[in-house]
Design a protein around this nucleic acid. Structure first.
Length: 578
RNA sequence: GCGGAUGUAGUGAAGGGGUUAUCACCUGAGGUUUCCAACCUCAUGUCACGGGUUCAAAUCCCGUCGUCCGCACCA
């Protein structure tokens, strides 16, 4: 007998895992009978519930913080929203194709060295620069380019069936929904920062070549949190809970070397530049470990300056190691006030701000020059309004008359003493409106789910045979308990079915009944999809109502009363029985 | 999007111009079995899709779609 597990490479393991996921109805390619579509997957009878449990765990994890609420907004988003957010520009890259080798490249990357800001160029301008400077192909060095073509990674559609409908896209992220709802959130939280909102739902990106299974999808499940803070208030976070836990931190190579450090210290040493970012990194770590990610295979990597998304001022990815190497599964970005400011500029709406009261009211007590309308009007005519505005905004009143006054449009006028009157005004300002900053943890649910499965997929041996156990955390396992009559006769199957029905009738619990095949085979089936508990009904059960419960992870069994089983399931205390 | 490989039951594979398309596991029924993939019998289910060549196509050709590997892209 050979120690096979040592010889197996990770690729073979990956194939066995995906085969199992298809065979057992966890994750399957979508629309397969119509030929399938790359980047789209179905969650099957086991996967559907698994994903929902994961999503619920995520929502509950953040709701527990107390200042975070859940919202839900449309996936279909008008174009103007995504122009304001920067997505239309960002997701609208031009591609140039080489006639020599057929390679395709981002047009703006080709002219990076020549133009300081190639992002803003049109396709004609890009083509002009490419031909003028005889740009060579990075692959084959040919100078023979097809015209630049736009490649939009968002799915476009129209809202409105008739002509004149409004351009729209399927959202590439859920975050914009939280920004749109900022005024409602602000009211809900009684005008007090900080607060947050979460949303979990579908996002869409028309990827060029979706590969790597669940890692890059065209329709995917995301879960995002926007946490709004006042940039002038020093955040207070208690990191003592994580004092003994060292995170794997990989800073921007320009800033430092990879280190292991607890989040409190990393924040204090300014390795993580904002305490609230550090706080969400720590809370993210908690979540990932809670749902069954191996803590040793989590690391946080800081985005490099060039890699940072267009809005982020500091960004750390939580990466998880699995069959595809290190994969970004969570992005925790300090976005500053980018989004709210962008929407304010685009719409002119002033409700995206928060009020910051001064500790002491500011009393404005000053002398100003007030224009004398009956003099200014006839002299400056159309310009009189601008003259008045300029006078009012003068910081210092000139000592001498006449003087030169510069207007907003740049022109200068001469002000004579009879045109103005000096006045003393008094104003009390109690605070100011400002754009909140936002820290955004964004989770790729599918990627996390993939790694949960990857880490839980345990190929062991049992009496010389290979044996698979999916060691899912009971809190997210799709099925809580398998109900197995020892044999399907003598009424054992009747009692088993009654227990099955009873458990399925309890909220948030799921059981399945399995009566076919030998008892060992049925244990194996349950182990393979990660059912944490199996209940067996035998002849003794018929006599005294007791059943045996078996623990997935070690096969250990206990005999308890049927009613105690159900009580323990409801209170989630089965583990205490062992 | 480019180049290469490839597509056969739920999974993994064999075959290949005329077959009732093969095998293992899986799944289901019956038997057996009082607890960890046992055994016996039987059964369900497959040539990605669309064209073409041919008397005849799962097999050859073309296209589409999918998958895998590189490149590129994305993050």
């Amino acid at each position: 007998m050979r120690p096979r597990q040592h010889m197996e490479d990770s690729h073979a393991r990956l194939e066995r895992l995906t085969s199992m996921l298809r065979r057992r109805g966890v994750i399957l390619p979508a629309f397969e009978i119509h030929g399938g579509v790359a980047g789209l997957f179905d969650f099957g009878p086991v996967g559907g519930r698994l994903r929902r449990r994961l999503k619920n765990s995520w929502l509950e994890h953040w709701a527990a913080q107390g200042d975070i609420v859940e919202i839900d907004s449309p996936t279909m988003t008008p174009e103007s929203v995504l122009i304001a957010s920067g997505h239309v520009g960002e997701f609208n890259d031009y591609m140039s194709e080489c006639n020599g080798c057929g390679g395709a490249f981002r047009s703006d990357h080709l002219v990076d060295d020549i133009h300081p800001n190639p992002d803003i160029l049109t396709n004609d301008e890009l083509d002009g620069i490419i031909s003028e400077h005889k740009i060579t192909c990075p692959t084959c060095s040919a100078v023979d380019w097809k015209p630049a073509r736009p490649m939009n990674l968002m799915f476009s559609t129209r809202i409105g069936a008739m002509k004149g409908g409004r351009s729209a896209y399927m959202r590439p992220e859920t975050a914009q929904g939280m920004f749109m709802l900022f005024p409602a959130l602000y009211r809900h939280f009684r005008n007090r920062l900080p607060f947050g909102a979460v949303q979990s739902g579908k996002g869409y990106r028309n990827e060029i070549s979706p590969r790597q299974g669940m890692i890059r999808l065209r329709e995917f499940n995301m879960a995002e949190l926007e946490y709004f803070i006042d940039p002038e208030v020093e955040p207070i976070h208690d990191f003592t809970k994580w004092d003994t836990i060292e995170f794997n931190l990989v800073p921007d190579p320009d800033l430092g070397q990879p280190i292991k450090m607890n989040p409190g210290l990393a924040s204090a040493k300014n390795i993580i530049r904002h305490p609230t970012v550090a706080w969400f990194m720590a809370r993210t770590w908690d979540f990932l470990v809670e749902v069954g990610i191996d803590p040793a295979r989590i690391r946080f990597r800081q985005h490099e300056g060039t890699e940072m998304a267009h809005y982020a001022t500091d960004c750390w990815d939580a990466e998880i190691h699995g069959s595809y190497g290190w994969i970004e599964c969570v992005g925790i970005a300090h976005r500053g006030c980018y989004d709210l400011a962008a929407h304010e500029t685009a719409t002119g709406d002033t409700n995206l701000r928060a009020w910051r009261p001064y500790t002491e009211p500011k009393i404005i007590d000053k002398n100003i020059l007030s224009g004398n309308g009956s003099v200014i009007g006839p002299i400056f005519k159309g310009k009189s309004g601008a003259v008045n505005t300029a006078l009012e905004s003068l910081e210092n009143i000139p000592d001498e008359m006449p003087f030169n006054l510069v207007l907003d449009d740049g022109t200068t006028v001469i002000i004579e003493s009879e045109m103005v009157e000096e006045k003393r005004i008094q104003n009390t300002e109690h605070g100011e409106w400002f754009l909140p900053h936002v820290v955004e943890p964004a989770f790729g649910i599918d990627r996390i789910l993939w790694h949960i499965l990857d880490h839980a997929f345990d190929e062991t041996e049992k009496s010389g045979e290979s044996y698979t156990i999916l060691r899912l955390d009971p809190s997210i396992a799709a099925i809580d308990v398998a109900i197995l009559p020892l044999m399907e006769k003598d009424g054992l199957e009747v009692m088993a079915n009654e227990i099955h029905q009873k458990i399925c009738g309890i909220r948030n619990l799921a059981s399945y009944y399995d009566g076919s095949g030998s008892i060992g085979r049925r244990y194996a089936r349950a182990d393979e999809v990660g059912v944490p508990w199996a209940v067996t009904i035998d002849h003794e059960s018929l006599q005294n109502g007791s059943i045996t419960i078996r623990r997935r992870d070690d096969g250990k069994q206990m005999r308890i009363q049927q009613n105690d089983l159900i009580a323990a399931l409801v209170t989630n205390t089965i583990t205490d029985l062992f």
